[in-house]
Design a binder for these strands. Structure first.
Length: 516
RNA sequence: GGCGCCGUAGCCAAGUGGCUAAGGCAGCGGAUUGCAAAUCCGCCAUCAUGAGUUCGAAUCUCAUCGGCGCCUCCA
């Protein structure tokens, strides 16, 4: 199968050929654990999950690794003096407040002053959200999900190598910097070559921050700092590692000097990934660190960039637990909403989109359960030559064209399957990638339809009976009045031969959008 | 100022030189229904603008307008 990806390194869509056909290596930049990850973060993480699942379905074995940044970097780490506040201290402060106000359970973090406990708390939260959304890697933890703080030695070794090879130096202030001038292809990924950086810095690089560096773009590898809340011994003094070094160190340690695919949000192209390349290739002398660099564009919320000040900063738990829209959003719906559009286009997270996704996910799940029943639960073993799977995988093989892939699946599920056992086999394969029909998770999840229905209050079942009675008496005026009332409350009402039933109830925010 | 991405129907979103421009939501018409809902059948775009290349372009080139990202912590 011909697979192609848009490679940021070359700005072209390239044919994908793994280095080793037996095992494709993927590294994804994971979360920082100073706070809950938001749905924009998860769009990026889910993208990594989809690539992996797709490659598996077309027959590759995949070795996927992500990192967890739990080193307490400074808010202004980019400055030479590593100024600003320690992110881990900020997180601790916030956790204490949350504990006081009862937002988190008191036992969750015993001592918020212990940075490792803070990190552990948010790591657990991340993993829980990831499992809810059906991310495979979360179930492999602690394998393949690497903590920066547990791999300091690998970073020290890498820094040592960089110094030996003349790519790094110890400055007058004792900080170890990477010398960008020592790496001739610096800027190849982002286009920010050194000459352009110098011209285009727009006066934002302050001279006093640069005083100890040989070049303004030199970045920190190790900072000796006794006062830092998390610190480790090193040949360059007790301190902490720079932001970029962990990914280079852990990716190479786990996956080898050159990996196949590296993913992350578009904002990581520069400086993070540019620096990773400089560090990794500088240390190994290899031509490439990652052969394919794939970057996900940002998620907007109702057309705006997500930010805490705008109040449109959503976490998975806010949505799933109903705090964002007034009623719980099923994880399968959220997963679908976050994966349904192309990774290289801005996607707009909206209430309307959630409603659309709800409809689609319900539809897919109904289809699968009908097929399952008709097939007696027996799935035929189908291969990718099946017309639906052929088109489905062909769309995904074309730079992960998920919208195109869905356009194959959705119309197919409109018709009753002629050969249920074969269809079930097809569904299983499709679901290996989509994982929404149903969503398979190691966490217990609410049944989608039951959740949409919620607990039907007695008034509502009573109203249904009253409506049946009115209809039996041909008092249609009264029956219609009851129906109107139920519809107003957001219930979808259906009259069947067995009587009136309510079918589902969308979150109130979605109802408003749909009525508008 | 530099480096990139993008602009397809009311909304979301495929299509990357050539049959009648996918699919979903909404809408409309029909079947069905006491009326609805659900379901089923059918309908619904000349592709931001302008110029060019070509036998032929939404697809390539240039320009213009508009949106977005990065260049500073950020998925």
């Amino acid at each position: 199968m011909k697979i192609s990806f848009y490679n940021t390194l070359t700005n072209t869509t390239e044919r994908f050929e793994p280095l080793n056909k037996e095992k494709v290596t993927i590294y994804g930049c994971g979360p920082t654990v100073y706070d809950y990850a938001h749905i924009g973060n998860f769009r990026s993480f889910l993208f990594n999950d989809i690539i992996r699942r797709f490659l598996e379905v077309v027959g590759h074995e995949v070795h996927q690794v992500i990192n967890i940044t739990d080193v307490g970097h400074m808010t202004d780490d980019h400055l030479a003096d590593g100024g600003g506040e320690d992110k881990m201290l900020l997180a601790a402060k916030k956790l204490k407040e949350a504990k006081k106000s009862g937002k988190i359970t008191a036992g969750a973090v015993q001592n918020p002053d212990d940075p490792y406990q803070v990190a552990a708390y948010y790591t657990e939260a991340f993993l829980e959200d990831a499992r809810r959304l059906g991310m495979k890697i979360a179930d492999e933890y602690p394998q393949r999900v690497l903590h920066a703080t547990q791999n300091i030695q690998a970073m020290l070794d890498l820094i040592q190598k960089l110094i030996e090879r003349g790519h790094a130096y110890v400055a007058d202030d004792g900080v170890v910097y990477y010398s960008v001038e020592s790496f001739s292809s610096y800027g190849a990924l982002s286009g920010n070559t050194l000459d352009k950086l110098r011209e285009g810095s727009g006066g934002r690089v302050l001279a006093e921050d640069q005083i100890n560096k040989r070049h303004p773009s030199d970045f920190m590898l190790w900072k000796p700092d006794q006062s830092h809340i998390m610190k480790w011994d090193s040949p360059w003094g007790t301190g902490y590692p720079g932001w970029h070094i962990e990914c280079s160190a852990m990716a190479m340690q786990e996956l080898g000097e050159t990996i196949d695919i590296h993913t992350g949000g578009e904002d990581l192209i520069f400086p993070h990934h540019e620096c990773e390349i400089a560090q990794s290739c500088g240390a190994t002398g290899a031509d490439a660190f990652a052969r394919y660099w794939l970057h996900v564009r940002f998620l907007l919320v109702e057309g705006e960039k997500m930010s805490k000040s705008k109040g449109n900063f959503y976490t998975v738990r806010d949505l799933v637990e109903g705090r964002a829209t007034g009623q719980p959003v099923h994880p399968a719906v959220l997963r679908f909403e976050l994966i349904r559009s192309h990774y290289r286009a801005n996607t707009n997270f909206t209430a309307k989109g959630l409603a659309d996704s709800t409809g689609n996910v319900v539809k897919l799940n109904r289809f699968v359960s009908e097929v399952e029943e008709a097939a007696g639960g027996v799935a035929e073993d189908v291969d990718l030559s099946h017309p639906i799977l052929k088109e489905f995988t062909a769309a995904l093989a074309d730079d992960l064209n998920i919208a195109g892939a869905l356009a194959v699946v959705l119309p197919w599920t409109n018709k009753k399957a002629k050969k249920p056992q074969e269809a079930l086999g097809v569904c299983r394969k499709i679901n290996h990638v989509l994982n929404v029909m149903p969503l398979q998770s190691s966490l217990p999840l609410a049944n989608l339809e039951e959740m949409l229905l919620g607990d039907v209050p007695e008034e509502v079942t009573g109203a249904c009976s009253a409506m049946d009675e009115a209809r039996a008496n041909k008092d249609y005026g009264a029956a219609d009045k009851i129906r109107e009332e139920l519809l107003d409350e957001g219930w979808q009402v259906q009259t069947t031969t067995e009587g009136t039933v309510v079918q589902m109830r969308l979150p109130s925010e979605l109802q408003q959008v749909l009525r508008a």
